[in-house]
Amino acid sequence: MATDTRVILICSGKGGVGKTTLTANLGISLARQGLTTAVLDADFGLRNLDLLLGLENRIVYTAQEVLEEECRLDQALVKHKQESNLSLLPAGNPRMLDWLKPDDMKRIVDMLKEHFNYVLIDCPAGVEDGFKNAMSASQEAIVVTNPEVSAVRDADRVIGLLNTNAIKPVQLVLNRVRPKMMANQEMLSIDDVTDILALPLLGLVLEDEQVIVSTNRGEPLTLNSVNSPAAKCYLNIAKRLQGENIPLIDPAEESSGLGAKFRRLMQTKIF
């Protein structure tokens, strides 16, 4: 039985910014560090966490049957094939949304807390009931956003709600960073986003085609492709969560050569 379980909500407001991919990769990375980790798919409407983890064919029961006491928790949990420290609690039927209440989410999370070091909650997009249910069961949060106006705006809404519900700490993951575009000032910089949202940066994730390849296969990058740019970022984030002091990747360093030097010069703030 684990004490001091950390229950972390992974949310973004906007859809498609990388919540589920982050949840899957953080889950794998934490499990690799020897930490027992449960990932809970709180997106009952549009569940996908099972697919990204490659566990979609092994689901027998879901959170729904656990709540309705038709099965025990351990029967619903799907253990990962390669990382036995990682388990998935699948989302139930979308019809659950009709009756699911914050207390139901708390019940599920309380059950998970007895068995795991980490509980990562993959939050649905939006700021409606699905989000509020997931938030009610969480202690801390990671807000995922992209360096794009719509994603940052939605993240701001979510941060406001997290603050009023006393969720803390709230940390930021900036996903899909393109160093070259940032250097050309055609993408919001890391400072822009952290200044606007006023959150501590837990990490950034570089744009990486391998993410698509990994979702095609149902094998998170951190499982097999640990040398891909995004995988390194995810692993760093997991280590920082554990309190390790890992310096941030400087996107400007990612592009090298004379062109990059020139772009850095052009980025110099004059006043």
Binding site: E148, V149, V152, R153, D156, M182, N184, Q185, E186, M187, L188, S189, D192, I196
Partner: peptide, 14 residues
């Protein structure tokens, strides 16, 4: 460059 436009628009809308 569009990043500064994005920054200004965001600050206003937020």
């Amino acid at each position: 460059a569009s990043a500064s436009t994005a920054r200004e628009r965001l600050q206003l809308v937020l």
